[in-house]
Simulated scan of single mutants.
Amino acid sequence: MYITTITSKGQTTIPKEIREKLNLRPGDRISFIVEADGRVYIQPLNVHVEELSGILHQPGREPVSIEEMNAAIEQSGGSL
């Protein structure tokens, strides 16, 4: 658990360990998600280009058909 203080301007510092875990950098944007039970979640909005490296084409990987993608989504409980 991490504890931080709110300033008179409503600002706070996100602890270093949390910033590192979420890969947050100066200038990044985050959203606060408030659940019905009062829990609050922080979600980074920025994705850095270096994090995208390799997610598209990978040599030797077979292409997947739309049907295979839809089947995988169905299996995971997702919806189209």
Results as ranks from 00 to 15, higher is better:
residue 5 T to E: 15
residue 27 G to E: 11
residue 43 Q to Y: 11
residue 26 P to W: 05
residue 60 G to F: 14
residue 27 G to P: 00
residue 56 L to Q: 06
residue 28 D to R: 02
residue 71 A to G: 01
residue 3 I to L: 09
residue 78 G to C: 02
residue 57 H to C: 04
residue 48 H to Q: 03
residue 3 I to W: 08
residue 64 V to W: 02
residue 76 S to W: 03
residue 2 Y to D: 10
residue 22 L to W: 00
residue 31 S to M: 12
residue 3 I to C: 11
residue 38 G to F: 03
residue 4 T to G: 12
residue 2 Y to R: 05
residue 64 V to K: 15
residue 67 E to L: 09
residue 12 T to Y: 11
residue 75 Q to I: 06
residue 56 L to Y: 08
residue 60 G to N: 11
residue 80 L to Q: 14
residue 69 M to G: 05
residue 22 L to E: 02
residue 70 N to C: 13
residue 16 K to Y: 07
residue 74 E to N: 12
residue 22 L to G: 01
residue 4 T to H: 07
residue 75 Q to S: 08
residue 13 T to A: 14
residue 17 E to T: 10
residue 70 N to A: 15
residue 20 E to Y: 07
residue 63 P to G: 00
residue 61 R to W: 04
residue 39 R to T: 13
residue 74 E to G: 14
residue 35 E to Q: 10
residue 7 T to G: 14
residue 79 S to Q: 04
residue 33 I to K: 08
residue 74 E to Y: 08
residue 45 L to K: 09
residue 26 P to K: 07
residue 28 D to E: 11
residue 17 E to M: 08
residue 40 V to L: 06
residue 27 G to L: 05
residue 32 F to G: 05
residue 7 T to Y: 09
residue 17 E to F: 08
residue 22 L to D: 01
residue 75 Q to L: 13
residue 10 G to E: 03
residue 37 D to S: 12
